[in-house]
């Protein structure tokens, strides 16, 4: 494999990072909304959130990509391929992050809500000042874990035909007939991106466990 092919892989890697970043950023924004709806007392907010989470956790990411990719044009949205994929990843991430943060919000000890109520804080301030900051900390390991999941998930864009790292690998492998070398290198590239994140997530988890047992 020569420099040309390697550069091509790096080009694909760039798109992998773009898809991950856009999906994660969008997922954070909409995921927060999903989480807040999910813990709401109103069934009109809660039930759609439950359905949204169930829909994305109960179907393959690949199907979600396909439906969005082929569905958007049908409904009159003519967007470039990367935007369609990013849109699907965002929706996917919003459901997973929403569920992670739902768990974290509900894991904040009940006494915190009661103390805030006893102080007469309005419900908005209870959520923003008391619950969310603590939930954010509790959710960090799982959030980082999902980021790894999402980064790996962007590889499925290859099946839709979008040229990110894995698709670039397929193309190069077909050109130079060395699939093992090429997929080995592609695998190492993913590993170098994901492993540090995984280690960081585990580090956070351990620190939190130590903090709780104190």
């Amino acid at each position: 494999m020569g420099t040309l092919e390697f550069t091509y892989l790096l080009e694909g890697l760039r798109w992998t990072l773009v898809l991950t970043a856009v999906g994660f950023a969008g997922g954070i924004a909409f995921g927060l909304l999903v989480a807040l709806m999910r813990v709401s007392k109103s069934p009109w907010l809660r039930i759609p959130a439950i359905g949204w989470i169930g829909l994305f956790q109960g179907t393959p990411l690949l199907m979600q990509l396909f439906v969005v990719y082929f569905g958007l044009p049908l409904f009159g949205f003519d967007v470039p391929a990367w935007a369609a994929v990013a849109f699907a990843l965002t929706a996917h991430a919003s459901a997973y992050l929403g569920e992670i943060w739902r768990g974290a919000i509900q894991a904040v000890p009940r006494g915190q809500t009661e103390a805030a109520e006893a102080l007469g804080l309005p419900s908005r301030s209870r959520m923003v000042d008391i619950l969310l900051p603590q939930a954010f900390k509790l959710s960090l390991p799982a959030t980082v874990g999902f980021l790894v999941q999402l980064l790996k998930g962007t590889s499925l864009a290859a099946i839709v035909g979008f040229i990110e790292l894995t698709r670039a690998g397929v193309i190069v492998a077909n050109q130079i007939y060395q699939p093992l070398v090429v997929f080995g290198i592609v695998g190492v590239m993913y590993f170098l991106m994901c492993w540090p994140l995984s280690l960081y997530g585990r580090h956070l988890e351990r620190r939190m466990a130590a903090g709780i047992s104190k």
């Binding site: 499925l156 592609v186 995984s198």
Partner: peptide
């Protein structure tokens, strides 16, 4: 465990698919 958890399934399945004949 670390290699599997930190690489995409799609890359794994391609690798196995092409590695086995070798």
């Amino acid at each position: 465990v670390e290699v599997i958890r930190n690489t995409p399934f799609l890359v794994q399945i391609y690798f196995i698919f092409f590695a086995l004949p070798f």
